[in-house]
Amino acid sequence: MSSNDHHSHCCGGGNCSPSTEIKDQKTEECCGHCDEPSRRDFLFMTAGAMGAVAAGSVVWPFISQMNPAADTKALSTTEVDIASIAEGQAVTVMWRGKPVFIRHRTAKEIEEAKAVDVATLRDKQSDDQRFKTRPEILVVIGVCTHLGCIPLGQKTGEVKGDYNGWFCPCHGSAYDTSGRIRKGPAPKNLEVPSYSFISDTLIRIG
């Protein structure tokens, strides 16, 4: 948009198209004949755009207030001593209000997990992508990726499903010893949270 002042008498200062024969008339109606945007259009547009930005920035706090608050986020790391988990055992710890499954896998369980052809899986991940540095320690979030129930299989005596990992009783999803989805409606493998080994026996989740 140019600010050509030659035509400022038309449309209160807007630019009529030079091809319009009435461009020099000092009448109000000439605005109706302008086929180029007038200064008034420009003002409308900028005011409108500023208004939209203002409205957006007022609305945003009201939407964002519903996101996790700072103290909720601050609770989002937890440290776990894994020394006491014997081979073949599993513990459940609470992290961000959800259970985290830590399983000390047996050699046989690791074997089973590695033997699977990744191409046949629904959510294609090899066992190597499922643990950090130590294959025997598997850490996954204990929330079924279908609709959020807690799968069974942590305690001795609980059903572990057809693939010897976990079984979700809600709609029948079965996970393998790597926490990968093998059967049932869940779309994804059990999520691996971000975690790190602080020492050989201590991990920090989150």
Binding site: A69, G97, K98, V143, L147, G148, C149, C170
Partner: peptide, 28 residues
């Protein structure tokens, strides 16, 4: 938990929406 998790089915932004509904990382 089950009903709010339905929204996680929405591609790409699902999880963000669910955490926004929860105001946390689970129903709490």
């Amino acid at each position: 938990t089950v009903i709010t998790n339905l929204f996680s089915a929405i591609p790409v932004v699902g999880t963000t929406i669910v955490e926004w509904l929860w105001g946390g990382f689970s129903v709490d």
